[in-house]
Amino acid sequence: MHIAIAADHNGHALKARLTAWLTAHGHTVDDRGSHTEETVDYPPLCADVCRRVTGGRAERGIVLGGSGLGETVACNKIRGIRAGLCHDLWSARISRGNNDSNVLVLAAKVLAPREAEEIVATWLTTPFNGGAHARRLEQIAALERESAER
């Protein structure tokens, strides 16, 4: 799978580890930054990853921050993105299975590296359940369209 990934200064070290892990597991990784531990603003990084996903240049995206909260807000401002902040395997399964999330957000200050790898593995392999969830996603897409028209 082709995955775009980015992190602010808080997630820089975990991003490096996950990039190596993803590559070792056969994925193509597009590292969008940051490439330093110096303080950076996360919204442009989030937008870059999300636009790669919505533009078809990546199948999925992963964004890392300290808490992941701001990153989740920023990602979900991009039309067509369904970003889920996941702290455990259950939330990773729900994020994909029920919400068909296309961007995973991780909290680098909360997760141990091994936990993050397990969450990524679960998120990448969990299929979308469809059914009633598809109907709800269409309702969410309608909210996006309505908001764009105003």
Rank of each mutant, 00 (worst) to 15 (best):
residue 7 A to M: 08
residue 126 T to G: 06
residue 137 L to A: 06
residue 90 W to V: 15
residue 147 S to Q: 13
residue 126 T to F: 02
residue 42 Y to A: 10
residue 114 R to H: 14
residue 87 H to Q: 12
residue 102 N to H: 05
residue 71 E to R: 06
residue 13 A to V: 12
residue 102 N to L: 02
residue 40 V to R: 10
residue 9 H to P: 08
residue 35 H to G: 10
residue 117 E to L: 09
residue 60 R to N: 00
residue 22 L to N: 01
residue 84 G to C: 04
residue 18 L to F: 08
residue 132 A to E: 15
residue 8 D to R: 10
residue 16 A to L: 15
residue 88 D to G: 02
residue 30 D to Q: 13
residue 98 N to A: 14
residue 37 E to Q: 14
residue 99 N to T: 05
residue 31 D to P: 07
residue 150 R to N: 14
residue 64 L to H: 03
residue 41 D to Q: 10
residue 74 A to L: 00
residue 128 F to Y: 11
residue 5 I to W: 05
residue 35 H to S: 10
residue 146 E to K: 12
residue 118 E to P: 01
residue 51 R to A: 02
residue 132 A to V: 13
residue 54 T to F: 07
residue 149 E to L: 14
residue 148 A to N: 04
residue 105 V to R: 00
residue 67 S to I: 05
residue 21 W to D: 13
residue 138 E to M: 11
residue 59 E to V: 09
residue 101 S to K: 04
residue 74 A to K: 00
residue 91 S to A: 05
residue 69 L to R: 14
residue 95 S to P: 03
residue 14 L to K: 00
residue 47 A to V: 12
residue 4 A to L: 05
residue 6 A to G: 08
residue 127 P to V: 03
residue 119 I to R: 03
residue 109 K to T: 15
residue 18 L to S: 04
residue 32 R to H: 11
residue 143 L to D: 11
residue 90 W to M: 13
residue 70 G to F: 01
residue 150 R to A: 12
residue 99 N to C: 04
residue 32 R to V: 11
residue 39 T to N: 15
residue 66 G to M: 08
residue 109 K to A: 15
residue 114 R to V: 14
